[in-house]
Nucleic acid binder design. Sequence first.
DNA 1: TCAATATGGGAAAAGGTTTTCTCAGGAAGA
DNA 2: TCTTCCTGAGAAAACCTTTTCCCATATTGA
Lengths: 319, 319
Amino acid sequence: MSVSTVSKALNDNGRMAADTRERIKTLAAQIGFRPNALAKGLLSNRSFTVGLLTNDTYGRFTLPVMAGISEALVDHGVSVFLCAIEDDPALGKIHVDAMLDKQVDGIIATGKRVDRSLPVDLAGLPVPVVYAFTKGEPGSVTLTSDDRHGATLATEWLKELGRQRLVHITGPREFVSAVERAEAFRTVAGNGAPVLHGVWSEAWGHEAIDRIWKEGGERPDGIFCGNDQIARGVADALRERGARVPGDVSVIGFDNWEIMAAQTRPPLTTIDTNLKELGREAGLMVLALAEGRAIEPGLRRLPCKLVIRDSCGGGRQQN
Amino acid sequence: MSVSTVSKALNDNGRMAADTRERIKTLAAQIGFRPNALAKGLLSNRSFTVGLLTNDTYGRFTLPVMAGISEALVDHGVSVFLCAIEDDPALGKIHVDAMLDKQVDGIIATGKRVDRSLPVDLAGLPVPVVYAFTKGEPGSVTLTSDDRHGATLATEWLKELGRQRLVHITGPREFVSAVERAEAFRTVAGNGAPVLHGVWSEAWGHEAIDRIWKEGGERPDGIFCGNDQIARGVADALRERGARVPGDVSVIGFDNWEIMAAQTRPPLTTIDTNLKELGREAGLMVLALAEGRAIEPGLRRLPCKLVIRDSCGGGRQQN
DNA sequence: TCAATATGGGAAAAGGTTTTCTCAGGAAGA
DNA sequence: TCTTCCTGAGAAAACCTTTTCCCATATTGA
């Protein structure tokens, strides 16, 4: 029995007697034969491997994205190298070099914000690159979640619940996503609706409420927060001031960071950014590019999703 | 110039004129020559690749461990396949098969608790396996953090601060780590010191304080919590009852989950479980095994570390 | 000047798989 | 019965390195 016959039998290739094929297959299964992916890759120029580059230390973004990528690619026999490069250009280069040495079929670059790029240059690489939640070079394929859409969803939900005096408490102006969410908020809530920029922390949520209360003007009855941490700070601060959530004030977050949103008192209604789906798309795209299929370059914004818990009142289920 | 000469030049192998070697090296650098790791692996039977298996969805444990592994291995040119298998045996098998096909040099299995094993059988694999934070088969190499040590550190710190009436609020009895921490707590605090088992959530922290206050007995002045989430719930509940933290009560957590511990009011003094270091060790061990060096089998417990923030008072810096 | 030795470079095999090409033998048609 | 065609299986090349072995040339000593 020659090597080539076996190969053809196992891959359903070439002409051969049906029973020979069967015989080979069962025998191979019996002895637990595993084709060596290295040899296969050497020949086919495909390693069935992609690299995932990230500078997200806590993995709040990375892990869901990673899960999506992996889920999409495992069906195609593709495995994922995860490389955390922090913000270290040298480390980034080392990891990219290692990926290239290992003949990855493509690279997915992820970060924490779409208006900053990773500390490593991925232009002109011999393999396709897809950017997710991080800035790519001009003409690249980039994925992010649709901040305007999410913010619109959130603000409309507050209005739908009958809230009139809306406020947006969010992160720094330097973040494009903060700005876009704020713009969408004002589009829905009215141009005069107040927007407070601060940092992305719980403490800032407290402080913002403190500031609003001290100002003494009309108090808001609906607060859209730039992320779940701020929302948590806001919810706590309101409770401490005797304002009931959601009785007196509806609070809505952003990110649907489970572990944060679900443990807040009350559990946060928030906007899910569909990170897993984003990962899945990124995986399929890099795979398509690796196989030579063309992908229209440019920035793709994936829709968000309203997740209803208790912090806004209401309770109509959405999907 | 023959292929073999180039190979020898680049690997500092074989006999050759020094200037020939130099000439080849500079030329190779110029044209950006990259040896194909697949071909190298095919020949050497080493892929310089390890697989990391995890069922930790939120990545609270996985990512720090992963970072440690990667950091330790990148110096040896080894890359890491990350495979999230949830609790799905079928998915686990698919990923393990994919790893084996790709000729990984070894596998690191991680989970969330050392008394449960992953839903996949890793015994009898043709590559070495190291277990971290998950249960391995008898005779395997397993790493975990030293729960007794951490709990001892925490309890001693409370005593050192002059706290007398200590309570331990922690997770379910079914977790070995909860039991071990509780035992160590009682060893230091006295056998009669109360231990409240519940779940690993913030809500349980609230409820436990509620229960203690309602019981109306002598109130604790030092509370050791089984994790940072419980500690957060405890701190919040105490504040709401007018007990000052750390003025009246010292609260100490466990895990040093940055994002949770640092945002608590007040920021939590807690026990760091050294996950990154654990990852590093796991990486070096699997590498050693892959290279044929022997590693004594058994369970290794890595020491913990006290991280002082504000929730206990005191302020002596430790390392 | 010749022989022996040292030195530098090349040829070839090996690693495991796929694919193309070739060949032998059998079956069917004339 | 002979020829033609088809079918099934094997041989060989290719993928890219590394390593061992060998050969040619140069150098040195007699």
